[in-house]
């Protein structure tokens, strides 16, 4: 069973459960105060506005007791995927490097973006080939990836960048960067290994054909591997 965490202010938890179910992956919502169930096969930290984005997006949820359990599970090999607010929580809790902060536009942006698959050798990207371009929606005000320059080089050298914002033809350009993210980075893998990853775009909103796009299904399929 995949645990989809629910904080006060999470709002993509149901979407994640439904998208996973459509792929034949059993998932349940888990209220953060209840702690992780005894045996989980994976964890989704979903999107939303946990704790009203007080202080910084994800800052409060990152320091809630259940995230200590998530860190422990991640360290022992349980797959963890943070999406949007879940990505902010992942970085705030040091599961993943860097930080997601205010968009360059200083606006909330809700739009479709193209992403270039940078590393197809992870559970989250095994469905794609390196260089593939996928279309996913974003919906965030604080999605600009920031990291110290030296550390971005390290991430690149270690092949830890999952996706970069790109043009429809796959070229990585400033014009295709929706939020000013350093290196056009949209998603990275975790400190514990490739089984932990975060991304700002929403694969769960692009999994069911009924809602318009299915390019994100391959990412959620990472829980099957």
């Amino acid at each position: 069973m995949i645990a989809v965490l629910q904080f006060g202010g999470s709002n993509c938890d149901r979407d994640a459960v439904q998208a996973l179910a459509s792929l034949g992956i059993e998932a349940e919502r888990v209220w953060h105060e209840d702690g992780l169930p005894e045996s989980v096969d994976g964890i989704v930290v979903p999107g939303g506005f946990s704790y009203g984005d007080y202080l910084r997006a994800g800052a409060m949820a990152a320091r809630s007791p259940i995230m200590a359990e998530v860190r422990e599970a991640a360290d022992s090999g349980t797959p963890v995927l943070g999406i949007c607010n879940g990505a902010q929580i992942g970085c705030e809790s040091a599961l993943t490097p860097g930080a997601f902060t205010t968009n360059e536009s200083a606006r909330f942006q809700c739009e479709h973006v193209h992403l270039r698959v940078e590393n197809a050798d992870t559970p989250w990207t095994a469905a794609y080939d390196e260089g593939d371009v996928i279309d996913l929606p974003i919906a965030h005000g604080e999605g600009r990836f920031e990291i110290e320059d030296g550390k971005l080089d390290e991430l690149e050298a270690d092949d830890r960048i999952l996706f970069r914002y790109c043009a429809a033809d796959g070229t990585v350009t400033d014009a295709a960067n929706p939020n000013g993210s350093k290196g056009n980075v949209a998603g990275v893998t975790g400190e514990a290994g490739d089984h932990v990853a975060v991304l700002m775009p929403h694969p769960e909103r692009a999994t069911l054909a009924d809602v318009g796009a299915t390019d994100g299904a391959g990412i959620l399929d990472g829980f099957e591997v």
Binding site: L55, R56, A59, R63, C91, E92, G98, A99, T101, E146, I147, E148
Partner: peptide
Amino acid sequence: ERLLANPTI
């Protein structure tokens, strides 16, 4: 260190 600031930024 632990909450008010994010050392990355």
